[in-house]
Design a binder for these strands. Structure first.
Length: 511
RNA sequence: GCUGCAUUCGUCUAGUGGUCCAGGACAUCAGAUUCUCAGUCUGAGGAUCGCGGGUUCGAAUCCCGCAUGCAGUACCA
């Protein structure tokens, strides 16, 4: 049987990178086995709905190249795929559970529950609505049947709670963790159906997974504690349960703990695939896409956070990942996000991007800075600095001097490279370059070298200060490549401007 | 507190009783690439396999206990 898997986010905000990894593993598993993956939106909590979140999720997966076969935004024969649109169908399942003695009505108000918790806390105990306490609460187990009917008929709000059986060992057979056993006595009677007429995650999830014929539930480890309840629900309905696989958590790089939405910008890397602007606060959280990451790099890096192919191969395309993926090789312990490795992956994948494509995007960036340069020049610049890039966004920092004259000159470099006689020598160089016809990399190089040899100088004495006038700092690619792209006139102007500016700077400092 | 899950270089991990005095990648350091910075290449250092007991001729690998970390403990998902 072909597997059917699902990714089922709640539209409460942007998609977290841990969620992206969960989706990725689902996708790899489905594709490897010729199965299907669907996108279901779990919006049963009306109070937490955030506008735009659903669109964000869809756009994020489009960017990453993860394609759903069914679901919100695509359609399919098991729809609707938005739980709010399935609202009407959940009640019958809650009723069925009650009718068969697997669940009960509870009339306790939120205030009453709150009070109960406080009372217990005062006695240094923790309150749990379970088989030990349900006898003290207001529910269809403690009330007369006629009273229950009366309350419901009167429109009194109620919830439906699952009723755990005593002394039952519940077995969760997990594809990653093996057999996990839990005694039913410690489990609480979870709310399945809320007083607002919506199911909770637990009910909706089981009903939908069954109706949508999901065969494998691959989700984060935070769900492991509620897996026993889910197993019991399948039993109560008499349905065959899907296989479970609980993924290790993505941890924050410093210290411990689950990687959370807050951590990203604090630690210098995005936790979201795309940039997100909170509709309420207007607060902006950075995204991988906007930070200059390539989707291939994000996919590759994420795939390796908690999984490996069992050998030393680390660089893998999405197609290769589909080939190599296996649930058995997923590790059990949480993985810390490593920014350095992520950068390395991006640098690696960046080298494979076509110069022309990079140049095209860079042209847009330049336009925003009111710089109008021809594609030929931009492409040459890109080709020259590409190997130094970690992110596409580094392009400007690595090559701004090709498009703008230096506005300042690096202090350290001046101190180290600007010596007595430097201005005169650079003026001589300028003269020589003027006479360089035709002017190109080759001829400029030869002429300058001749000058150096004739005057018994060493290269550093000329090249470093020369570079300083062109670039404004002691950095950048081969100097004659720069000279060639800049052109003779620009080079001479920069030499002259540099001499004046730096000499002035030194004079001012001495006074 | 209770319940569950986890524990190999700084980080991600390989390893399923002998071929492991533990291999790879990122990071770090050094050398090379002699105009700079970066990149690249080469090399080096780095884990008594959380701790303590067992089982075994032999354990990172199996068993037990402990410790630590994490998760869950909502009419959130």
């Amino acid at each position: 049987m072909k597997p059917r898997v699902r990714f089922a986010p709640s539209p409460t905000g942007p998609l977290h990178i841990g969620g992206v990894r969960t989706a990725l593993y689902n996708y790899l598993f489905a594709k490897q086995n010729g199965g299907t993956m669907l996108l279901r939106i779990e919006d049963t909590d009306q109070t937490r709905f955030v506008p735009g979140a659903e669109e964000y999720i869809i756009e994020a997966f489009q960017w990453l190249g993860i394609k759903f076969d069914e679901g919100v935004g695509i359609g399919g024969e098991f729809g609707p795929y938005r739980q709010s649109e399935r609202k009407a169908m959940y009640k019958q399942y809650a009723d069925q559970l009650i009718a068969n003695g697997y669940a009960y009505y509870a009339f306790d108000t939120p205030e009453a529950l709150e009070q109960k918790r406080k009372d217990c806390e005062a006695e240094k105990k923790t309150f749990q609505y379970d088989l030990h306490t349900r006898g003290e609460m207001t529910n269809s187990l403690t009330l007369e049947a006629s009273e229950v009917e009366r309350r419901i008929a009167a429109g009194e709000p109620y919830v439906v709670r699952f009723m755990h059986q005593p002394d039952t060992e519940i077995l969760v057979d997990d594809l990653i963790r093996g057999e996990v056993r839990i005694n039913s006595n410690i489990l609480d009677d979870k709310v399945l159906y809320k007083s607002d007429g919506m199911p909770t995650y637990h009910l909706a999830n089981i009903v939908d997974d069954h109706l949508m014929q999901i065969t494998h539930v691959i989700r984060g480890e935070e769900w492991l504690p509620s897996a026993p309840l889910h197993v019991m629900l399948y039993k109560a309905f008499g349905w065959e349960a899907p296989r479970f696989a609980h993924l290790p958590l993505l941890l924050k790089p410093d210290g411990n703990g689950k990687l959370s939405k807050r951590d990203g910008d604090r630690l210098g890397f995005p936790v979201f695939p795309l940039q997100w602007k909170d509709p309420k606060s207007g607060e902006i959280s950075s995204g991988y896409r906007e930070s200059g990451y390539l989707p291939e790099a994000v996919i590759n890096m994420l795939a390796l956070l908690g999984w490996n192919p069992g050998n030393d191969q680390e660089v893998m395309s999405l197609d290769e990942l589909i080939q190599l993926f296996s649930l058995e090789k997923i590790s059990k312990a949480g993985a810390k996000f490593d920014l350095e490795k992520a950068k390395w992956f991006n640098h690696h994948y960046l080298q494979a991007v076509d110069d022309a494509e990079l140049a095209k995007n860079f042209q847009a960036t330049l336009k925003q800075k009111n710089i109008d340069a021809c594609m030929e020049k931009i492409t040459r610049v890109v080709a020259l600095v590409k190997e130094r890039l970690y992110f596409t966004n580094d392009l400007w920092e690595q090559s701004s001097f090709f498009f703008e004259r230096p506005s300042s000159y690096d202090e350290q470099a001046i101190k180290k490279r600007w010596k007595e006689g430097t201005p005169e020598r650079l003026q001589a160089i300028a003269e020589i370059l003027k006479g360089c016809v035709p002017f190109d990399k080759e001829s400029a190089h030869n002429q300058v070298m001749d000058y150096i040899h004739q005057n018994e100088l060493n290269m550093g004495q000329i090249m470093n200060s020369f570079r300083l006038t062109l670039v404004g700092a002691a950095k950048g690619p081969d100097l004659f490549e720069i000279v060639d792209i800049l052109g003779v006139e620009e080079v001479i102007e920069r030499i002259n401007a540099g001499i004046i500016a730096i000499e002035n700077h030194i004079k001012n400092q001495n006074n």
